[in-house]
């Protein structure tokens, strides 16, 4: 009897789980940012964030070691590179106090600080998105450091993205290369504005550029920072890598190579103070 009823039980379990999944998808899809699942989501992020923080401290050198092997062809240069990396990482870990200064130095290099007067807190990247269809990072600063949802995040090289989820000690940052990210941007020479959207880790595309606009190869693209926008103006985003012009289109499409190397993000500046310049 028990044996006969088992497949039916299993089927019941599976059907109820599928129904629960569908219900969750529907409720969450309709609930947007305020549904009960967002609260549960933040709790999960908090727990996993804490674990990521611990694990990333231990495994970052290990990860760097393995990626070194994968990327360097010759054994000798690989060895040297890894040594340099390990030394670099050790130095950085030891000098966490001087992290702020280091970041300031990078910012000064990029003339970001002088021209834009960005203020905020530095943060270490402790994890990446768990999925292959989402481009985000987890950083070790949260609401207790003044980080809020929609706060812009930059490095010395340029724009990284904005905060989409905050727990007291960690935050999740959506990268500008995520397909659902859109940044209002401006071409530095002509001043033409357009919308930059992420392309799954590849170069960003900039849309809505008028056909008559002059676009130069490798021309810098910066945030346009319109009134009420997410990002302060004039933060470097990337460089023009390609211009596409369909014969009958009313707008141009431009490919933009990001200024930031998203494969090796380590320290970021969370712009909590905004731009006073």
């Amino acid at each position: 009897m028990a044996l006969r009823s088992r497949p039916r039980n299993t089927r019941l379990v599976v059907i109820s789980l599928v129904m629960m999944s569908l219900l969750t998808i529907t409720l969450d899809y309709r609930g947007g940012q305020s549904g009960p699942f967002e609260v549960a989501g933040r709790a999960t992020v908090a727990v996993v964030g804490a674990l990521q923080n611990g694990v990333s401290k231990v495994v970052r050198p290990i990860g760097a070691f393995f990626s070194g092997i994968a990327h360097v062809a010759s054994l000798q240069s690989e060895n040297n590179k890894l040594k340099r990396q390990v030394a670099d990482l050790q130095r950085r870990t030891a000098e966490r106090v001087s992290l702020e200064r280091e970041n300031q130095r990078l910012l000064a290099l990029a003339h970001l600080e002088q021209t834009l007067q960005l203020h905020g807190v530095t943060a270490t990247v402790i994890g990446e998105s768990v999925g292959n269809f989402e481009w985000s990072i987890t950083i070790n600063r949260g609401s207790s450091s003044g980080v809020k949802v929609d706060t812009p995040v930059v490095t010395g090289n340029g724009l990284v993205g904005h905060v989409i989820e905050v727990t007291p000690t960690t935050s999740k940052v959506q990268l500008i290369i995520d397909p659902s990210s859109a940044v209002a941007a401006r071409l530095s020479s002509s001043g033409e504005t357009g919308l930059l959207t992420g392309q799954r880790g590849k170069d960003l595309t900039m849309d809505l550029i008028s056909v008559g606009a002059k676009v130069f190869p490798n021309e810098p693209v910066v945030t346009s920072g319109y009134q009420g926008g997410l990002y302060p103006p004039d933060i470097p985003v990337g460089f023009v890598s390609h211009v596409y012009q369909a014969p009958n289109d009313l707008t141009k499409l431009i490919s933009v190579r990001p200024a930031v190397d998203f494969s090796s993000l380590e320290f970021v500046l969370v712009v909590t103070g905004g731009s006073s310049g």
């Binding site: 789980l17 599928v18 629960m20 569908l22 219900l23 768990v130 989402e134 999740k172 659902s180």
Partner: peptide, 14 residues
Amino acid sequence: QDFLLNQPKGITAL
């Protein structure tokens, strides 16, 4: 996993 992603929850569960 869904709760860690910025998308409608439940897709991975399904």
